[in-house]
Design a protein around this nucleic acid. Structure first.
Lengths: 251, 251
DNA sequence: TCTGGTACTGTGGTCTGACCACAGGCGGCT
DNA sequence: AGCCGCCTGTGGTCAGACCACAGTACCAGA
């Protein structure tokens, strides 16, 4: 079957040449965040491919969080280089979970690893002193919002997700932040479905709020070990509660 | 169909409806890995969008590692659902690094976290006994290959990457495996460029091989703490060696 | 009957040309 | 001077055409 590599595989697909063209310009600095790409018609003519192929490549770049497109004219129009990996990570994780490429259990385990590292880092930073408190206060504002009574479970979960993301952002690691955003949306559907398996939402919500406060408290106390243990128990405890009892292939 | 002009302003973009259609079928089980999607023309007619829009959506799904397309006819033709997140992660990380969305330092830090977790898990599994040895032997075969003399630095780095990936695969966590593959290719260009900053490649290569053996040895001895320390020093030591001295915005 | 080749069919891959909605800029009108 | 409408260029979408490809069905010959 390797004989088919003779004719077709030498020439890459048209949209890939566009993708490689943009990536090359990105690497060598010709293109930087904020810059505008040439118009689709110009790109098409410059690379000798059809506009459809250019559009397929641009669509990929858009989904990957590398460009943002606007119709019309003016400085805001056209395809502009950005770098917002969060959405791409989310789409990737979500679809891979849907296609059974990522078991939910592996996502939860990865969250455990990353979040433990995040709170450990935060506690260490707090120990060494520094301007970390401002970012932590953003997370604490979310905790306050979660205390408001009459919150519907889905709203509570959204605030919960934002809280964990705020911790990641406070750690300053953009890769971990984007990855955690992706992991979260990958299992968001299962978290919502798992609500039905909770016996007593009020008790669970109270426990989650208490655990959140405990985590922040440990970080503030610069106690990395306690913070790691608490977030580990927090996450694994919750998912143990909502995971289906019978074996489910997506878990 | 004449109302599409007015409906377009409210409706999502045409290719997104295709994407959502596929995702919905994936979630509710209508589509599963191995299944074939309807042909582009059929999908176009079924969803009331043009074939170009269908193709843009399929291109996104392909880059995200969800489908594989083949021309021709027969059971291997058409778009088939797969779930190979590795390539998507790699493309995402590579492009985000190129677009300065991900600092290289954050990628290295994330590698530290994930790989420490991987070797810790492996050591713990080894402690509890189990059929872990076969997978570890795959990693060890790569170490043997790295001992072969006359290996060019790029070849050595490729084997090095494969070794670290083999450890992740042995841990059994597919999310971590795919993420590590992505992280690695995100900084591959910088690893290659960093070779020029090494004073003595022979000495470095010998040290890396020694450290690799030490990591596997610690895993085999079920000594999680030592394994974590060793892989941490291994990775951070290497990147400290190849990172540029002057400040570089991409780091 | 078996075997070999050939035409057919349906697939993705690509290009072209056309039209639309949109948003800004420019120039003429008030 | 200030306002308003045309003009232009952008992405978004669609329709149709052609190509290369790979399997399949069919038919002719041994």
């Amino acid at each position: 079957m390797g004989d088919e590599a003779s004719a077709r595989s030498i020439e890459p697909r048209a949209w890939q040449t566009v993708l490689e063209h943009v990536e090359r310009q990105l690497v060598d600095g010709t293109l930087a965040p904020g810059d505008r790409l040439p118009g689709e018609r110009a790109l098409s003519a410059a690379l000798g491919v059809g506009r459809s192929s250019v559009r397929e490549a641009l669509r990929v770049l858009e989904v990957l969080g590398l460009i943002r497109t606007h119709a019309g004219s003016g400085p805001n129009s056209g395809a502009i280089i950005i770098a917002t990996p969060g959405g791409a990570m989310s789409a990737l994780m979500r679809l891979q979970v849907a296609a059974r490429g990522f078991p939910v259990a592996d996502i939860v385990r990865t969250r455990l690893v990353l979040e433990a590292s995040v709170v450990g880092d935060l506690a260490a930073t707090e120990a060494s002193g520094g301007p970390t408190r401002a970012d932590l206060s953003a997370a604490e504002r979310l905790l306050d919002a979660m205390d408001s009574p009459g919150l519907e479970p889905p709203e509570f979960l959204a605030l919960d997700a934002a809280f964990h993301l705020a911790l990641a952002e406070a750690s300053g690691n953009q890769v971990i932040t984007a990855t955690m955003a992706g992991l979260r949306s990958g299992i968001e559907g299962y978290a919502l479905a798992g609500l039905a398996r909770l016996d007593d939402w009020r008790a669970t919500s109270a426990r989650l709020r208490r655990e959140h406060r405990g985590i922040v408290e440990a970080i503030r106390a610069a106690d990395a070990a306690t913070a790691c243990t608490r977030i580990h128990d927090h996450i694994s405890g919750y998912y143990a509660e909502i995971s289906p009892k019978e074996s489910d292939p997506t878990w």
